[in-house]
Amino acid sequence: MTSKNKTNPVEGAEQIIAVAHRLADAARTETLKLFRSPALRPDNKATTGFDPVTEADRASERAMRAILAAERPEDGIVGEEYGVQQGRSGLTWVLDPIDGTRAFMAGAPSWGVLIGLNDAQGPIYGIVDQPHLHERFEGGLGHARLISREGTHRLKARQGVSLAEATLMTTYPEVGSSAEHAAFSRVSAQVRLVRYGLDCYAYALLAAGHVDLVIEAGLQPYDVVAPIAVVQAAGGVVTDWQGRPAHGGGTILAAGSHELHAEALALLMGD
């Protein structure tokens, strides 16, 4: 099981953090221009089904990439809308310009902007930003904090909660394949409360101590790198459903404590 929470500053950590906040500020500006706007015109990226993208997604990522080109040109970039740009520094920014585009389309404030940073081993820093609510959840490089209109508060995942007492969140009730849904159901049948549909905001609530478990499947790296960094900085645990590092995407199990993670992992694995 992996629960990496790097608190030792890497070289240039203060500048990295400053740049990350500039990325989040730029993405706020671009996304809020079209949130709840009649000018919003979603496109469908999928050849079958519905995978929406909007000009807000594209403009948000373009704005962040422009800042990185100017201020961190040696770093790599992985972004949902504009793909991979190789770097030379050993650090890679992982960007989801709007995580939860369906919520964005519906006017629901559960979407977010995800800004993660990987080194060779995985996530070292992340921001989960909710522009409409003015909530910024930050984790890694010595920080675990929520910055909001009410001020700055420490992020701390909830401890001492058993599976029977836990609140579990996932985005889609279907939760992946039929086998993955069956594994999820083994856990959901044992918890106190299950809620759906918050995308990245569920991980932010876990880091803030309001949610105990987030279990998902079918995710991409840009969906998970920033949430992993934030949850781990807050004292939580994130792996895939086999207890391995999860920053490559796929299945995700996030828990507020090692004990709760072990309970949920055993059920997901069918033990």
Rank of each mutant, 00 (worst) to 15 (best):
V161A: 04
E150Q: 15
G160V: 05
P123T: 02
S110I: 14
A157E: 11
G83S: 06
G107F: 12
G176F: 00
L133F: 10
W93V: 01
I124P: 03
G140F: 09
Q121T: 11
V84H: 15
V128Q: 02
A59G: 04
I124V: 12
R88G: 11
G100V: 10
E150G: 07
G79M: 14
T101W: 11
R65Y: 10
V128R: 08
D57W: 08
L114D: 08
R88A: 15
F104D: 01
T167Y: 06
V84R: 14
E81V: 04
P123D: 07
A157M: 07
R154N: 09
S148K: 05
A70F: 01
E81S: 08
I124Q: 05
P173A: 07
H132T: 02
A59D: 14
E81L: 04
V161L: 06
G140P: 02
G90K: 06
W93D: 11
E81W: 10
G87M: 11
S60V: 10
E71L: 08
N118S: 07
P131E: 02
A70Y: 02
G139S: 07
H143L: 14
A56Q: 08
G90R: 01
A164F: 10
P73N: 05
F104K: 04
R136A: 12
E165S: 09
L133Y: 04
R72H: 13
Q159Y: 08
A103V: 01
H143D: 06
R136N: 11
E80Y: 13
P123A: 10
P73K: 06
I67T: 11
R62S: 08
V84G: 01
E71Y: 03
H132I: 00
V113I: 12
E138P: 04
H132N: 09
A108I: 15
A66H: 11
D129L: 07
A103H: 09
Q130I: 08
P97V: 03
L155Q: 11
S148M: 05
R145G: 01
Y125T: 03
L95K: 01
A66G: 03
A166G: 05
H143A: 12
T152A: 15
A164K: 15
E80Q: 06
T171D: 14
R149N: 15
H143V: 12
A66S: 13
R154D: 14
Q121W: 08
E61L: 12
F104T: 06
Q159I: 00
S148A: 13
I77A: 00
E138Y: 07
G176P: 00
V113T: 13
H153G: 07
G90P: 01
T170D: 10
E165H: 05
D75A: 09
A108P: 00
S89C: 09
A108W: 13
Q159N: 03
A103L: 11
Q159P: 01
I67C: 05
G140K: 01
A120S: 14
G139E: 08
L95C: 09
G140N: 06
A56V: 07
R149V: 10
G83C: 12
L168P: 02
E165N: 09
M105S: 02
L168G: 05
G79C: 13
M64W: 11
A56P: 07
L114W: 02
S60C: 14
D75V: 03
E80M: 11
V78R: 15
R65P: 04
R72V: 03
T171M: 00
L146S: 04
G76E: 03
R102S: 13
G100T: 10
V84F: 13
P123G: 02
E174N: 13
